[in-house]
Every structure is written in C-alpha cells, then in structure tokens.
C-alpha cells in the first residue's frame, strides 16, 4: 500500500490522509492499522488534561518547544468536542500552539469527538499509532477534561499530566477526587496568580491522604506559568522520571500488556457482535426475533441469546469437515 510506505517514510500528507481515513472509518482503515502496527510501540505518549480554561494548549505548546530543543520529533493530538446539535465542531487548539506551526519536526492534528462521550475521539488510539509509525518520538494527547471523562486518556498516554489553576472554584473541588486518581503529574498553571501556593498545598495534602506504598509513584505537584514558559522544564523532567519509574518497576510492560489485552478483548466483542448481527439481518432471524420482543413475548436478553446460539450453531456446522 503506497499510503503506508509514504507514511512510514515520514510523508506528512500521507500521515494526514491516513488519520482522516481512520477517523472516517473508511474501509481502508483496517488494513492501514494492520500495516502500521509492526512499526509502533516506540513513541513516548503524554496525556494533558484538565478543566477548560486552565491553559492546556499553552502548556502543550511549551512542552513541544522544549522537546524540539532536544531534537525529538513531536506529534500532537488535540481533541475538542463535536456540537451535539449540528454534528459540526470548531477546533481551536492550534491558536495557542504557535511555535510548532511551521516546524517540520512537529505535527499537530485536531480531532473532534464525533459523538464519543469520553472527551476523546473514538480513534485517538489509532491516530496515536499512526503518529508513532510515522516516526514521532513524543506524542502529546490533549483533551478537554471536565469530570471523569478524561480517565480514558490513561489508556493512550503512558504519563498523564493534569492541569489545574488557582481560583477555578467549586467545579474543581467536585472533580478533583477523580482527577487526582488519574494524574501522574499535577500542574498548577498560572502560578503567578493569587492562590497558587494554597492550591499546591491543598493538592499535596490530598495526595498524602491517598498515598499508597512507599514504592509506588508519588505524583509531584509542579507550578508553571505556561504563557511565560516558566516551570515547563520541570514538568518534562517529571514525565521522564515517571517513565523511568514505570520501566524499572516493570509497570510499563504490565501496563502495555493490560492495554493490548483489553484492546483485543474489546475487538473480539465488537467483531463477533458485528458478525452475529450481520448474519441475523441477512438470514431474516433479526426481524422475527425483534417482533417477538416488540410483542413482549420474549425479553430482549433471551432474544439476543437465542440469536447468538443460532449464529454459533451455524458457525460450528460450517467449520465441520
């Protein structure tokens, strides 16, 4: 496949097009994912999340800048919500990611959630793999976080950075508990504002309460002023430490196995389900099962179980010699 070769070769248009095909669930997307998979697993992934208005994009811009200074190539996936009314979206993260705008070592892609509720696009994982295969060393995933939704970012990012700012108020209080659980690094941005030290102390105290064993990772609480590039080097250093910790403790491998395991399991469920549905529809079994349910003669679960049983029987018959 020409597109894959070009992508592996670092062709930016090919990469961009591959991401589009993936997002659009194009029939080619499956082959594409299969072809790039052997070339993935190399990139370091960092998730950046937090409530709206905390300066996520500015932090990402600063981190990109610092990573570039060390020569590493950086990919960014920035996710914004799709309008539930029109299905359209305005993706504005590039506004703040200015320094990488014309740097050939940086690739920024904005994704809309397209109906996915988790704050990420359905295809975030696949897009990250495409960037990985295209040779980006560090991949930053930025997502709107406003509750438990951003928990999902942990699946794609080895290190999750949660950003807060002083003076956000009750809203943050409410989500803090959830946010602290997913954070590998906590950042108090806009730390030149009043209340920054208070927030740092508060976060540290809360972390202290939930601290695990002495050997486990303790999320550091770091202060930044991203608009002035202050404190971001410490964030990157902490991300590096976190990576080394995961590596040396064996968690990195365990985590990878867990995620791939979950992915394959999910796909089995998805593919088997789809195959069963396709068969049921084409065999006419679907309509009759559904009318039984509509007439309340059969409950939904029994109807589904019946369909699956018949589907499996058919599969077994076919596979007999």
């Amino acid at each position: 496949m020409d597109l894959v070769d070009r992508l592996l070769d670092g062709d930016r248009r090919a990469l961009a097009r591959a991401i589009t095909l993936t997002e659009n669930e194009d029939p080619l997307a499956g082959d594409l994912a299969a072809a790039v998979f052997p070339h993935t697993g190399r990139a370091r992934t960092l998730g950046v999340t937090g409530p709206p208005g905390v300066g996520k994009s500015t932090v990402v811009d600063g981190l990109v800048h610092l990573e570039r200074a060390t020569g590493r190539r950086v990919g960014v996936v920035a996710v914004d919500p799709t309008s539930p009314f029109s299905g359209g979206a305005i993706l504005g993260d590039r506004i703040r990611m200015r320094r990488g705008a014309s740097d050939p070592g940086v690739f920024i892609r904005s994704l809309a959630t397209r109906g996915h509720l988790g704050g990420l696009s359905w295809h975030t994982g696949s897009v990250v793999r495409l960037l990985d295969a295209a040779g980006f060393d560090t991949i930053l995933i930025e997502t709107v976080g406003a509750g438990q939704a951003e928990v999902e970012i942990m699946r794609y990012a080895v290190t999750t950075i949660v950003i807060l700012v002083p003076g956000l108020g009750d809203e943050v209080q409410a989500i803090k508990a959830g946010i602290l659980e997913i954070a590998d690094i906590l950042v108090v941005n806009k730390a030149d504002r009043e209340g920054a030290d208070g927030l740092v102390r508060e976060l540290e105290a809360t972390l202290e309460l939930g601290a695990g064993s002495a050997a486990s990772w303790k999320p550091p609480v770091l202060k930044t002023v991203a608009t002035a590039d202050r404190g971001l080097d410490a964030v990157l250093a902490a991300a590096h430490d976190h990576y080394l910790y995961l590596e040396s403790s064996g968690s990195l491998q365990a985590r990878l196995e867990r995620e791939l395991n979950a992915e394959v399991r999910g796909l089995v469920r998805d593919l088997a389900g789809r195959a069963a549905l396709d068969w049921a529809r084409s065999a006419g079994a679907w309509d009759s099962a559904l009318s039984e349910v509509l007439a309340r003669r059969t409950d939904p679960r029994s109807a589904a179980a019946g369909l699956v049983t018949r589907f499996l029987g058919r599969v077994q018959r076919k596979s007999r010699p």
Partner: peptide
C-alpha cells in the same frame, strides 16, 4: 463564518 460552518455540520479548524 466558522460558526456558520459548524452549525452546518462541518468540522472547522481555526488557526488564530
């Protein structure tokens, strides 16, 4: 214009 596109169901990337 960005808003009009969004309201028509398109995805708009705004550069600033």
């Amino acid at each position: 214009v960005a808003r009009a596109y969004r309201d028509a169901g398109l995805e708009v990337v705004y550069t600033g």
